[in-house]
Design a protein around this nucleic acid. Structure first.
Length: 880
DNA sequence: ATGCCCACGTA
DNA sequence: CGTACGTGGGCATT
């Protein structure tokens, strides 16, 4: 067998290489937003994919140490004892790295009581016997002993992990002057400081090689030690036992018992979905295509699991379609493809037990619409993947859809709210292990046909089985009882849009533009030059270099210039520029919001947002294009923007309804705190009531300052606030914040007990749960990384509260939507705890009654749900 | 063109 | 060192 024809086995010492990467890469650039350090993982994987590309191994494994303990530490307790404690920031990366490798189809090997290099030695030995060309990659010099004609070592150079030096026998001889198998003899004489193995004093590599060459072997040298003259000779005699011990310890074991043979390490295809998931968690972007590329050759060689062929969809006439749809009680998959916002084609699919799959489809037409209208509006169960855009398209075509039994995208989000599968294709890969056929959009005449609507419906039906199996009962009820009814409601809200006055906006925008320009001129005058006031980078130059103002809080790229920091600066070192800058920020920010909103007004004068039902990890909605959930409200001036949201033509008024303090009420309910429950049942102002208890005064004697403090504390509780954060927020001493917290918890102890126990429960279960059973997993609650763990604890504290509030609002929302079915009034907006309804003439009383009733009774808590209702011609007016 | 960072709007 | 979001400008990168 020629060398090139031999299969190549690559075995990597994961621990030593990741450890080198950990020190080679700056941690600042490799930290996720949650605080997980990833520099070791990134550096290792980057090196690893380069290695795969360059060496194209046919067989592959990565070995790890299990711990610092091994048979060597037992034999010699001082072994590696001088090493600093492995940083926890590094240790925490190892399980994640292993997870990455497993997702990439790479075998990860560990063996308790042995080091990774013993695994390398064993596999190298077995590999050569089995006829492999073996490549080893390790950052531990002891592996040099393994090099021979069939075994090459790739050793990271000092410059970094990306540069690997190849050690074959000639390279070892050139570097050390001796054959590879004698390297441990050199090391035994010289010693290895990193392993805490002291060698013979005054003996370095040069001397060791000279002696070994002279005597021919270590044994011969040690026996003849007394013949060597001088101080070093004496040293050798005195340290013979040390040398023997060193040699025992640096011998790598070639016969470790392993669960696999080299032949079984044949490269496996990667699990694309798993790789995407873990890389998303680690926020690796550029690495993803490199990994796929490196894995490409393997994936093609490996036969895919035989995918069930998609049924050929029969092209049907309108009447055939209607007959087919109406002909069964089995769940039907429905897919509408959409063109320009309207239905273009429709496909239906069905899987009948024992009879296989069937699909029909048709190009959209008035006849099709008419034929399918009754069935679509019926309760016949339908599965739609990412249903909302399809419901909207059908809605624009004048069709209502009922009987939505499942939306796989929503189900996937409920299972993994932190990493939702975004497309049906993602779910097909996850649950079926198949690729959804996709037409290549870059090709004019695609080589591969994309799935047709009928086939997509069939795929949607098939993933439902896996999702149903995985969905816990409580979560399934959140899907059926909350999310699916909400889905149809949102489709109608998005279609309705909200009327926004271009006139009001453009007038305001003009004013703000003029003002911003004037302020900018003043600002330039204050510093004697022009800068881009919108550039934090340029501002830092001005503030901290030219004006020499005291430095603010650090950011990744310098020092912050945010509003809070600028206000602080203004107090410490008055400078007119600061005030100008703050005013300029305010004006330009408002103008930016206004102009964005103005641009979103459709020809009919209405703005239509998109609610992303899977847009949060807690159960809330999010709003995009434009975001109507962050329209300014806090300042008098910014409310002019809300005033531009008007009642539409043909309608009477806007109704706003919001829950007051819903999160604190949920906190009262979940904690069962008698004091807090009483606060809500007496009808007293919450913060006044709490303030009276905390400060031991009568409610009427609670000063504004006291009220502010307990209010901040109450809200902070919901977010997992610390004394530090509370002090910062209130600009008081940390000691005062601390005593405030102590006083608060002395009066409302059940709140603290609840918060503590709910995080504890989440640590045990691995997830939190809302009142209605919505779950959110928290794997990081047991992380060794403190920042990561504490972040998870705060989020876990908040999730049941924020999530329960979201559940309650959704329930109220779709019930109101249903109740309004026979009225002209309609819900337009949801802003987490607030709804905006457009009320038709003559319907006010009825609508107000419905809204109050539904919001007030969406959940039965131990405290009442208080609802504030307002009426006006615009959103600002209605808010009062 | 694309992606990251900063800053800031809401509940 | 307080949760959950989305947007837009600047700026470095491709």
């Amino acid at each position: 067998m020629t060398d090139s024809a031999k299969p190549t086995l690559l075995v990597v010492d994961g621990h030593s290489l990741a450890y080198r990467a950990f020190y080679a890469l700056p941690v600042d650039n490799f930290t996720t937003k949650d605080g997980q350090h990833t520099n070791g993982i990134y550096g290792f994987l980057s090196m690893f994919v380069n290695l795969l590309k360059a060496e194209k191994p046919t067989h592959l494994a990565v070995a790890f140490d299990t711990s610092r303990e091994s048979f060597r530490t037992r034999e010699y307790t001082e072994y590696k004892a001088n090493r600093a404690e492995t940083p926890s920031e590094f240790r925490g990366q190892i399980p994640l790295l292993q997870e990455c490798l497993e997702a990439m189809g790479v075998t990860v090997l560990t063996k308790p009581d042995f080091e990774a290099d013993d695994i390398l030695a064993t596999l190298a030995t077995q590999g050569v016997e089995a006829g492999f060309r073996v490549l080893l990659c390790s950052g531990d010099r002891d592996t040099i002993q393994l090099v021979n004609d069939d075994v090459t070592l790739l050793y990271p150079s000092v410059q970094g992990v990306s540069q690997l030096k190849r050690y074959d026998p000639p390279a070892v001889v050139e570097k050390y002057g001796l054959a590879p198998e004698m390297y441990p003899d050199i090391a035994a004489l010289v010693g290895e400081t990193s392993d805490n193995l002291p060698g013979v004093p005054k003996v370095g590599e040069k001397t060791a090689v000279k002696w070994l060459t002279q005597f021919g072997s270590l044994d011969a040298l040690l026996e003849g030690a007394h013949t060597i003259k001088g101080v070093v000779g004496g040293n050798l005699v005195a340290h013979v036992e040390d040398v023997r011990r060193n040699r025992r310890l640096n011998r790598l074991l070639r016969d470790v018992e392993l669960p696999v043979r080299p032949e079984e390490l044949i490269r496996q295809p990667l699990d694309a979905q798993a790789v995407r998931d873990i890389f998303a968690r680690l926020e690796f972007r550029t690495l993803l295509p490199r990994v796929f590329e490196a894995a490409g050759e393997v994936a093609q060689d490996e036969p895919q699991a035989a995918a069930e062929p998609a049924p050929q969809a029969r092209q049907a006439s309108a009447t055939e379609l209607a007959a087919w749809a109406g002909g069964s009680q089995v769940e039907t998959g429905v897919t509408v493809t959409i063109l320009g916002g309207l239905p273009e084609r429709i496909g239906l699919a069905r899987i009948v037990e024992g009879q296989g799959a069937e699909a029909v489809e048709a190009t959209w037409s008035d006849e099709v619409a008419e034929a399918l209208a009754a069935w679509l509006a019926s309760d016949a169960p339908k599965v739609l993947s990412d249903a909302k855009p399809q419901l909207k398209a059908l809605g624009r075509a004048g069709l209502r859809v009922s009987g939505i039994a499942y939306d796989p995208i929503l189900a996937g989000w409920l299972l993994r709210p932190s990493f939702p599968d975004k497309t049906l294709g993602d779910l097909v890969e996850r649950y079926l292990g198949e690729k959804l056929p996709e037409a290549d959009p870059s090709q004019l005449v695609p080589e591969t046909e994309g799935a047709t609507p009928g086939q997509l419906s069939w795929y949607a039906l098939r993933v439902v089985t896996g999702l149903r199996d995985e969905l816990a009962e409580s979560v399934a009820s959140v899907l059926v009882d909350i999310e699916l009814p909400t889905l149809s409601t949102l489709a109608d809200m998005e279609l309705a849009g909200v009327a926004v006055s271009h006139e009001k906006l453009s007038r305001f925008s003009g004013e703000l533009g003029t003002r911003a320009d004037a302020i900018a001129q003043e600002a330039y005058a204050a510093i004697g030059r022009e800068v881009n006031l919108g550039s934090p980078k340029q501002l830092q130059e001005v503030l901290f270099e030219e004006l020499q103002l005291p430095k603010t809080r650090k950011t990744k790229t310098g020092y912050t210039t945010d509003a809070a920091a600028l206000a602080d600066l203004q107090e410490k070192a008055h400078h007119p520029f600061l005030d100008m800058l703050l005013q300029h920020r305010e004006a330009t920010k408002l103008k930016q919001i206004i102009d964005g909103l103005d641009a979103a007004i459709a020809p009919d004068g209405r703005v239509r947002t998109t609610y992303v039902q899977t847009g949060s990890q807690t159960g809330r909605l999010s709003s995009t294009d434009p975001n109507l959930q962050n329209i300014p409200v806090r300042t008098e001036e910014s409310r002019r923007i809300r005033a531009a949201f008007e009642v539409g033509d043909g309608y009477d008024s806007l109704l706003t309804a919001d829950y007051s303090q819903i999160e604190m009420r949920i906190m009262a309910h979940l904690s069962g705190d008698p004091g807090l429950i009483e606060a809500f049942n007496t009808g007293e102002d919450l913060h006044r009531f709490v303030g009276a208890r905390v400060f031991g005064v009568e409610p009427e004697d609670v000063s504004p300052a006291m009220r502010t403090k307990v209010k901040a504390m109450s809200y902070g509780l919901v977010y997992g606030l610390s004394a530090f954060g509370l002090a910062k927020q209130l600009r008081i001493d940390q000691s005062e914040a601390k005593s405030l917290m102590i006083e608060y918890f002395a009066r409302f102890g059940a709140v603290r007990d609840y918060l503590r126990s709910s995080v504890e429960q989440a640590r045990v279960d691995g997830y939190t749960e809302t009142i209605f059973g919505r779950r959110r997993p928290f794997p990081d609650l047991t992380s060794p990384n403190r920042q990561l763990r504490e972040n998870a604890e705060r989020a876990a504290l908040n999730a049941p509260i924020q999530g329960s509030a979201a559940d309650i609002m959704k329930i109220a929302l779709f019930r109101i939507h249903n109740d309004l079915r026979d009225l002209r009034s309609r819900v337009l907006l949801q802003i987490h705890d607030e709804l905006v309804v457009e009320v038709a003439p003559g319907e006010w009383d009825e609508v107000e009654r419905i809204v109050r009733e539904r919001m007030g009774t969406a959940a039965q808590l131990t405290v009442p749900l208080d609802v504030q209702v307002g009426r006006g011609a615009d959103w600002n007016e209605a808010a009062h």
